[in-house]
Amino acid sequence: MIIPRFYNIHDQAITIEFAAEISDATNMQVIAMQHAIESSPIKGFVEAVPAYGSLTVYFNDQVSAGTVRDWLSDLSAQVSNTSLATEGKQISIPVCYDPSLGVDLPWVAEHLNLSMEAIIALHTSIAYRVYMIGFIPGFPYMGTLPTALEVPRKQTPSMKIPAGSVAIAGKQTGIYPAEVPGGWQVIGRTPLRMFDPSTSPCSFLNAGDIVQFKPITLEAFNHYQ
């Protein structure tokens, strides 16, 4: 049983930190807590934002910080490891690993002393948990990568990483939802749109989802669009 730490990041936002670590068990607790909060929200509750090992709860003038903290404290005691029944969606994501799209695949292969085929086989060998969506709209932080796939971030971030780029860094893998600067190593690209404000939900993935990458050919990728 983890005793969470509570702290304020704003006069109207409290973070419940279960553990400052990247682990499936901790993240499951975070998502279970989010579901518990959203299924019986207190008056003045605004939204809950999951991260790897913490959940942050935003509230408004209709409730005091003290009341929210007491409510969260009671709820977190109820959300034990036994109540983790809520599971995320299982989602298959097509990825083209052609080096014309996965521009850093040759570098990664050389760095790890593996063939590009072996990198693709490793990346698609297991399903990944979506720990959280952030730093920009729709970006899923996923893990945990097979140890053999761990590479450092780029020394100098790329100025423009195309939307849909599937990338790896350390123990994590992610998908860039829009063209932004970034420091992760790009090994492929998905034709799927990760963020679309005109759809509901706006993000293709959600914290707690389980993602399996499926390799597709460049022809299939082009056909997709």
């Binding site: 704003h10 670590e21 991260a51 790897y52 942050t56 952030g134």
Partner: peptide
């Protein structure tokens, strides 16, 4: 190295 967590206005 910190494990990423929520941030907001004023931090």
């Amino acid at each position: 190295e910190m494990v990423s967590t929520a941030v907001t206005t004023g931090i």
